[in-house]
Simulated scan of single mutants.
Amino acid sequence: MDLHVNLLLVLATAALTFADVPYYVPKITAKPLLGRLTNSGFVLEKPQCIFHQYPSDEVWLVIVNNSVLPQLDVPVNLSTPVESIDFERNQYFHIHKTLGSEFPCTDTFGNTADLLLVGSDSVCNTTFCNKPLSTGPFRAIFVVLNNNISIAQSRWSDLITLNPGLQPPVIPNPPRRSAGMIIIVVILSILLAILLACLIAVLATGSKDICWRRSIDNKPLIHLEMVRHYYNYNKHSVYVVHTEYKLMK
């Protein structure tokens, strides 16, 4: 009796384990991370203890534009991996190829190994590039492939809508100036130019007048000095008068 009970428990456990995959729903991580949902991607929780019954099979994450979901036959359409460069044509692509044995069974808070980033490759230099997303909304699904044959798949995720990008601030157009204002500005500019020209002319004329007066003021000084010089050497009044007369010419 006990043998039959244990056998039933083992079979029930095995059946429940293998049923985990079709009932698993991909979801955006609940961890308070920056960038968990952006305008070009999102972060999913990595499945734990879900695909360990397929240790040597390929597990792919498929990102699908929700608009083509009704036309997709998952076992047929998603059994052949599609690169992200073909997304515009197919509206879906495969990323994060992983063996079933590589999925963890433990979770560490904040550990990036327990997360799957979608749209994180700004520069695509790999075959199955995890390129940024632009249009949507999207849904995600995990498929298990063996030689391009789908042997299991998860459920579809809930609808994933990216955060809208911030719009640049709108700069209002400057108010148009009337014709009268333009005329006033032109007239004031001309008057200012005339005033500046007059100021320069006055300064130039004043500097010439100052130089001329200084030259006139210097002449008597030179004349007196020369008179004193000659007078000291020749005291004769006639000579002094004669010399003064010659210097005055």
Rank of each mutant, 00 (worst) to 15 (best):
S40H: 14
T29A: 02
D86H: 09
P26D: 08
R36S: 14
L34K: 05
V64M: 06
G41R: 05
V82R: 02
E45K: 13
D86P: 10
K31V: 14
N90C: 12
N90E: 11
N77V: 04
V62M: 03
L34G: 15
F42Q: 00
F42V: 00
T29L: 02
D57Y: 15
Y23T: 14
P81S: 06
S67M: 04
L44N: 08
N77F: 04
C49T: 04
T80S: 12
G35A: 08
F87R: 04
V74P: 12
E58A: 14
P75N: 04
N39T: 06
K27S: 10
T80F: 09
D73V: 06
N65L: 07
S84M: 06
L61W: 07
V21K: 14
K46Y: 04
H52E: 10
V64I: 10
E83V: 10
Q48K: 06
L78E: 05
T29Y: 01
Y23G: 15
P75G: 11
P81M: 03
C49V: 07
P55K: 01
F93K: 14
S67N: 07
Y23V: 13
L72H: 09
K31L: 15
T38Q: 07
H52D: 13
V64F: 04
P32E: 09
Q91R: 13
N39P: 13
K46R: 02
S84C: 10
R89Y: 06
I85H: 04
E83D: 03
F51W: 02
N90A: 12
E58Q: 10
F87L: 05
N39D: 05
T80Y: 10
G35W: 08
